[in-house]
Design a protein around this nucleic acid. Sequence first.
RNA 1: GCCCGGAUGGUGGAACUGGUAGACACGCAGGACUUAAAAUCCUGUGAUCAUUGCGAUCGUGCGGGUUCGAUUCCCGCUCCGGGUACCA
Length: 1141
Amino acid sequence: MEPNFREIAQKWQKAWKTSGIYKTSIDSTRPKYYVLDMFPYPSGAGLHVGHPLGYIASDIVSRYKRLKGFNVLHPMGFDAFGLPAEQYAIQTGRHPADTTAENIARYKEQLDNIGFCYDWSREVNTSDPKYYKWTQWIFLQLFKSWFNLETQKAESIQSLIAKFESGGSAATKGACGEHEAFSASQWKEFSETKQREILMQYRLAYQDYSTVNWCEALGTVLANDEVKDGFSERGGHPVEKRRMRQWFLRITAYAERLLNDLDGLDWTDSMKEMQRNWIGRSEGAMVRFDLSPNPSPQERGASQTVLVQEPQSPYHHAIPEVWNALISKAKEMRSNMTPSEKLLWEELRGGRSGLKFRRQHIIDRFIVDFVCLSAGIVVEVDGEIHNDQKEHDEGRTVELNRNGFQVIRFTNEEVNSDLHSVVEQIIFACAQRKLYNEIDFIQLAKEDEEGYSATPLSNSQNSTETPPSPRGEGPGERSDKADLNSTDSILPSNHHNSSSTPPSPRGEGLGERYIEVFTTRPDTIFGVDFLTLAPEHELVAEITTDAQRAEVEAYVNTAKNRSERERMADVKRISGVFTGAFAKHPFTGNPIPVWVGDYVLAGYGTGAVMAVPAGDQRDWDFAKHFNIPITEILVDIDISEAANPTKDAILKNSGFLDGLTGYQGIRKAIEEIEKAGIGAGKVNYRLRDAGFSRQRYWGEPFPIVYREGAAFELEEGQLPLELPVMEDFRPTGQPESPLAKAGDWLEAPEGKRETDTMPGYAGSSWYFLRYMDANNDETFVGKEAEAYWQDVDLYIGGTEHAVGHLLYSRFWQKVLFDLGHVTTHEPFRKLINQGMILGRSNFVYRVGGDNKYLSADLLKSHPELKTSALHVDVNMVKNDILDQEAFRNWRPEFAGAEFITNSEGNYVCGVEVEKMSKSKYNVVNPDDIISEYGADTLRLYEMFLGPLEQYKPWNTNGIEGVYRFFKKLWNLFYNDQGGLKLTNDAPTENELRTLHKTIRKVEEDIERFSFNTSVSTFMICVNELHELKCNKKAILKDFLIVLSPYAPHIAEELWSACGETSSIINASYPAWNEAFIKESSVMYPVAFNGKTRFQITVPADMPQAEVQAIALANEESQKWLNGAAPKKVIVVPGRMVNIVM
RNA sequence: GCCCGGAUGGUGGAACUGGUAGACACGCAGGACUUAAAAUCCUGUGAUCAUUGCGAUCGUGCGGGUUCGAUUCCCGCUCCGGGUACCA
């Protein structure tokens, strides 16, 4: 008789429901165990076979822990607010409340079919006002608190107000935005609006203007993790940046705690690592670089007169005879400029670049292509460069250098292909040169050193691209000038005594402006060759010189308008522009050019970096691209091809850091930076405050009203603030919420309502707490319930929530903990990530344009046939063999399909593993499996598929094996006629051994979440009991208990067949007895040099020496030893014997 | 690029602290039962060689190393999967 597993499942599901056996309550006599699944988002598509994988695992643990005597909390609910539900509703033209309710009903039905032991009386639904009342309440707790940096805890905003009243803004340190300083009396005089404005800077839930991801198509802003490569994760619509007033949660205040507390969690390393990366802690230093004053026109004039004899005798050294020849030649050249020269001249002529250039100008005995006399820069454009030409050029360069000119060379190709960059470099070189000139002037005057003309560029390889540094120490030469003493002597004196006055946050000091950078490599500070600002950096406009203004503005505008996507797309492209400004190196006093580049992100650190080409590849690339000279600071490291970012290289040319490794240098450098009062060691985080506003309809409304522009919270008694029912809830297409159209609702007696709604993660950040006391109307979770259930012992869900949900939940929990509302500071003790179940797509191969299909196993033998692969519904395929009739009936166009089958007459389908999706026809619905094989088979088979955490394709092929197992089990209880064949006989030793081995193994497996191996243990047990022809109740009943977490329905059915009247769910897990498992004799494999040759069987308690003797005495041993004496014999007790020859 | 994980028969996978590699299952082949099929049961199934038999050799992505002994530990690679990124 065939058992009907489907009917059995339905029967017991009904019985359990009626008896309310899954209802859980607080029971202080038993230890608690809280097993939680990540609750699903009820989409319209329903569950596929991949969804229940984690649920099955958690259900097994729940039932097992219950058998073990724990009071188990195992709830389920629905994450029902959010964008997808709204999108789905808009698509179907219905209200999200209706579609959500339907989807939930469908999900529940599907879940119940699988036989989960959820206590549905604790169901939560985040879109239910009874639930979101408390989401709003928690938001108010965040709104009404601030983070005290001194105690590293959240406190009530009242304590902050008290501190302001007594000591003004200086009285305390809290995590906050920017605001002015004020005294206690000033505070008291502030208007309420003003006070609220300041408090807003401290609240854990606060408002701020910020750039957000605005998605035109979805009509809403998106969280960073909802944006992938500049497109919305859902729908793939383009996303752009907009500046809007938004709600934020001050999660950054908790960065350190969120990071440190990871250590105590039983999560996978990769999961913790993802959170660590997201928090992105990096240690380093803040360093300020004072800005040199921009040269005024007068100063420029001064420098000109000193350094270049201009304009009186620009043609110096030219003797009359040569002069006449040169001048006619120059005229000729002017009228016959090469196309590249013409191109460049168009950019340089008439002072367009802010500098005056002359063309085909005579200097000494040369005619140079272009020259900027005020800066002393010669620009040469060459054709193809041959070797002898190169030599000639070098000679010419040296002579021009001698005359005080710096030569920059470009090839025709460079000018033609990247004119912009060429012009850029020229302007940069001129500006830099001008500043050097000034400094030289000052230094020369002061120190009475050798004159400028005696500072030639001697390094002929790169001299054309290398401007002289202030006192003549070009790269790789004159190192005697770069020693500690000389750098000390030019340290600005104010740096030595300014440590008592902390720098203001930005470069707005009195009379002195500076750029503050964050660096993780303060040890490389002597290798700083330039600074780079993010295009959005606030100092950009201020410091840019007039000459560079047009270009910088153009660059900044382009960068701003470039969407995220475009910026991502050409990460490789290096772009930037020189501001014309210079900063002063804090230790050497060298001028450091300030650039703008979009490789620097405004949102990280200070939005400015100190660029060290020697140690950072991006800086290196930037320097090479713009011909910025690179300072070498690493001993014996070649940086001609790439930067060296390692910290173990020895530093040189680095003043007080010389001779130290990077590791040592970091500490020393921070020390010196702090001593000099130009900065301090600093820990920086990548984590940003969490955007908490959404311009959508289907979310929690904020319990906030506005009066005179200030935000006021609603009273607790006014919650929930229900979402108004609206006919038209579609996005407005403007960056404002659909709720802006809500008419009367907007006008509250207390003021004007906030129209944004909360994001999807609001409700899911605390749902695990609500389950503990889901029906409490007085509070979000009762004190008693919270104290009993505390936290989640086991949390199972996908890795996709690694940083979003899991981080926000931890943050909320910590805030609630600080405020005294919960007793634990981490919500999820152990976390397991189930791997995704992938689809296994099947294909048919259509021949040409015909309605004819070639079997996949014949593809190779028929290379002459051109075929195209078509996805075919996997539900028409069994063991990769197509149901031909079903295919013909699938769609009208396949009705007359002809099949070229293999020799057995089968049509074999092709196979590919892909994500499960409707469009690939590879979705398997658990309901179909259940109606064919029953719920237990589905449960057991999903577990049998492989390790829980592993990604694996769904393959229905193996399910028969599990089904056979159940039939085999059934046959231990029933004979062919359907009669029970159970006996009450005493079990034999063998039967007991089989049983107790199984009890032990399954227990061990569940404890380490190795569910797939318990399934094979069940199979082994049933196979053995079959062999033993065991139908003894004493054995089978215990086996059923062990099996019941995996296969509750069949276990319950057979349990009652044994005459039990109470449910197996309430049974106790049997204890295994070592005495039954112990074998009286042990089989030892005997190996020679590690290779197993034969086996011996000896009594289990035989001493090692005797085992060794027996092994050696064996005649097989004699054969393998071949007369030789063994060198060594190793006996591993109970394991094996190894004889070394 | 960086971080994490992985690679074992025709397939999914097992081997938990280094100790008989391939448990359990699928598939396949052969057999029993049956008029036949399904279901069920039995046998075999890593590769190569030898097959009359005893068997032998190789084998856990590749190359080294440690060890009496390595799928397991170490070093260096290859490939695959996931995460993440101009993060200074």
